[in-house]
Amino acid sequence: MSFTAPHIGFVLASYGLSALVLVGLTLAIVWQARSTMTRLKDLEGRAAKRRKPAKQVKPQ
């Protein structure tokens, strides 16, 4: 690719914008997946604690 060719700015803008949008979309989807996973694990942990009855401690 020649960086001195006419209209090269249009080519660079197209690739730059595409990279920005696709990387942004990927990061947004991955971030949502991680935060949702954390929230679900937190809720499952709380639910498991509620289900588990408190253990009786035997007197020694």
Partner: peptide, 11 residues
């Protein structure tokens, strides 16, 4: 089209 043909590869 010269170099602008490269836009086709993403468009």
């Amino acid at each position: 089209q010269g170099e602008t043909v490269r836009i086709m590869f993403i468009h």
